[in-house]
Design a binder for these strands. Structure first.
Lengths: 149, 149
DNA sequence: ACCTTCTGGTTGTACGGTCGAACCATGTCC
DNA sequence: GGACATGGTTCGACCGTACAACCAGAAGGT
């Protein structure tokens, strides 16, 4: 596929990442790569909430790496859908605690299922002997990126 | 980082990809992950043009996986910056051929350099023995994604 | 030749995600 | 108690993308 490139050539890595990004359609904002009618950030937010049960809004902001204003609006949309409810933090009068409603839990489950199916199909297309390596690679990349940013 | 997960668990792959996407800040539209003051799509377009020298607009559309209207506007911006010029295709009266201007070539070179530096730093943060694997992983992912979409 | 259909591009319109700044309330520290 | 920091909200703006309508040139059939 890619032209001759050593593994130590930055251009090779760049090309590989760029290809991946484009293929996944990560610049298309209003649809999740898995085809769900929900924005990527919303999907991520739902994932975090489903996983943690309860989450401080500021913590969600940190995890999503967005501005607090953006997250505020984002959460507003999710509550608008009836998926999330806000509550006052007990230990901090300023804080907002986010929690999934029953409908939200259902939605998160559906999202997770769709995602699981999509990724299961994807996984099927990855030769079995490559899987562990691929998985590992993304972790390595994320850590490396965080490490020197 | 992630909890115990087998390499055959779709959720593991999903989590790995999600983490990577967020870490790279791919939702920030008007800055390239490398910190350049240019949109991701513009950067990709410049890369393609620099690589091919000449490119039919429709081909660029295909490679960037965008709508033709979006690309038309995108190209308009690049010509506005004086980086790209449009010409009539010789073999097709409808077609538009895109070419970098000298300034565009310079800009592309600067972008490439910034990208190279960023990825070189990133590469430095990746243990040497992981590099080939990481590189390979992105290719595998892209192919797998294309394969069953 | 003519008509139809397809294809490459452009323009208008709308939508939606993100940011920055201004502002408020609460917590924290000296 | 005053100064500063922190968590949230609201407002205004920007920009990338999609969809639809439209146009002009190409391709193919009759």
């Amino acid at each position: 596929m890619s032209r001759k490139h050593s593994a130590d050539d930055p251009a090779a890595l760049q090309a590989a990442v760029a290809g991946f990004v484009r293929a996944f359609g990560l610049h298309q904002t209003e649809t999740t790569p898995c085809g769900q009618p929900i924005s990527v950030s919303e999907a991520h937010a739902m994932g975090e909430l489903a996983q943690d049960g309860e989450l401080r809004q500021v913590e969600l902001t940190r995890r999503l790496r967005l501005q607090k204003s953006t997250v505020s609006r984002l959460v507003g949309q999710l509550t608008g859908r009836g998926w999330v409810e806000r509550a006052q933090a007990e230990d901090d009068g300023r804080g907002v605690v986010l929690r999934l409603t029953p409908a939200g839990r259902q939605a998160a489950q559906n999202l997770a299922e769709a995602r699981r199916e999509r990724f299961a199909r994807l996984l099927d297309s990855i030769p079995a002997h490559e899987r562990a390596g691929v998985l590992h690679a993304f972790d390595v990349m994320r850590e490396a990126w965080d490490g020197d940013r």
